[in-house]
């Protein structure tokens, strides 16, 4: 299968899912008004990617802003990864990056961490 890549633009994040390294990254701002449609190809790719068991996957989020609609899609991504870990002998690590001092982005990470049973790292970075 092929890697999945979308370049960031005004209201969409950069999405870089690599099936050779098994590193999946979402980065930037996400406030598309129709996230169901926008993320559909992302979920289609993930379905194929997760069809094969026993992978060691790193999921990176490095968001500066996302709307509530994207927030729901991110939880769906995390739920898929959790299911993969539980049922397909996968090993998943989530790295949630937030800019130092961005208390809201840190809190968003903590709220996802509470909602899924995956190794979760909250990692500050300075700009």
């Amino acid at each position: 299968m092929e890697n999945f890549f979308i370049e960031s633009s005004t209201y969409i994040p950069k999405i870089d899912f690599n099936c050779e390294t098994n590193i999946l990254s979402i980065e930037g701002e996400s406030y598309h008004e129709y996230t169901v449609e926008f993320f559909q190809p992302v979920f289609e790719w993930l379905d194929k990617f997760l069809a094969e068991p026993s992978k060691e996957i790193t999921m990176n989020f490095k968001m500066t802003y996302f709307n509530t609609s994207s927030s729901r899609r991110f939880l769906e991504v995390l739920n898929l990864l959790e299911e993969y870990q539980d049922e397909s002998e996968g090993k998943v690590t989530v790295n949630w990056y937030y800019e130092e001092g961005d208390i809201d982005m840190l809190e968003s990470g903590e709220e996802y961490e509470e909602d899924v049973n995956i190794d979760f790292n909250l990692i500050p970075y300075s700009n």
Partner: peptide, 15 residues
């Protein structure tokens, strides 16, 4: 946020 997407509504019901 854990509830399923509402049919025919594009929003997340979280705004």
């Amino acid at each position: 946020r854990k509830m399923p997407q509402r049919p025919d509504k594009p929003g997340a019901n979280l705004g």
